[in-house]
């Protein structure tokens, strides 16, 4: 019998379940990535701050989150967080179930991981901006916010983009770790299908192909963005 019937859509195959899992993976990755970038920016700013306390806190955060296995961050949020709620509930005399929702815990974990990595990327990119260009902006009386929005941010993004593409890949792969919470994303669906049909080879190959497809598409998108943001350094004339 053709083993590919296992990938069919409908009640007899795993096609629709895999599509759902893949969509969930993309949603977790997209939310985690977006949230991580937004959180990463102030962390990078804190890393570069002249304030010793801000620098210390952000430094510890970035070092710890990047230094420990990502799985541990997910465990901490999903189970550790739950245990924290548990203590509170017990103290209040409530013995029922209190649990971190798998989706929220998963997305939050990815945000925290992505923020640590993107903060370091942003920090390096900020430092790569030629000092003279910042000085010129100051010499013309730009306010700090104009300087940041018009000069630093767009220049920084140009330097950051290639490494941010790497962070996205990391985030995409980290979603697979979220499956430990039981959240039904692509990797969990693959595990269920592989174990239930006893066809691990077929399903793991399918997972590889789906992840590669995600990677290929996002690589194209990042290449386009890089071309767009670096058009000024390639030295094109006009638009």
């Amino acid at each position: 019998m053709n083993p590919l019937h296992l990938l069919a859509f409908g009640p007899t195959g795993w096609g629709d379940e895999l599509a759902y899992g893949a969509a969930m993976t993309l949603v977790i990755a997209a939310l985690g990535f977006a949230g991580g970038l937004v959180l990463g920016l102030p962390i990078a700013a804190a890393r570069l701050s002249s304030n010793v306390v801000l620098r210390a806190i952000s430094g510890v955060y970035v070092t710890v989150v990047r230094g420990v296995p990502e799985l541990l961050v997910i465990y901490l949020l999903f189970f550790g967080g739950g245990q924290f709620y548990r203590y509170v509930a017990d103290a209040l005399g409530y013995s029922g179930a209190v649990a971190a929702d798998a989706f929220s815990a998963g997305v939050l974990a990815v945000i925290l991981i992505c923020a640590a990595y993107s903060a370091e990327v942003f920090r390096g990119a900020f430092q790569a901006i030629p000092k003279g260009q910042i000085e010129a902006a100051n010499a013309f009386g730009m306010t700090r916010s104009t300087l940041f929005c018009r000069i630093k941010l767009p220049q920084m993004l140009r330097y950051a983009l290639p490494s941010i593409a790497n962070v996205w890949q990391l985030v995409l792969k980290d979603t697979a770790l979220v499956s430990v919470t039981g959240l039904v994303e692509l990797m969990r669906t693959i595990d269920v299908a592989a174990g239930s049909t006893r066809s691990p080879f077929l399903f793991y190959m399918t997972a590889i192909l789906i992840f590669l497809a995600f990677t290929a598409v996002s690589n194209k998108a990042f290449e386009g963005a890089e071309r767009h943001f670096s058009r000024s350094v390639i030295g094109g004339y006009g638009k």
Binding site: Y75, F79, G82, Q83, R86, S95, G96, A97, V98, A99
Partner: peptide
Amino acid sequence: IPALNEKR
């Protein structure tokens, strides 16, 4: 086992 301990 962690999920068991937190009464899920």
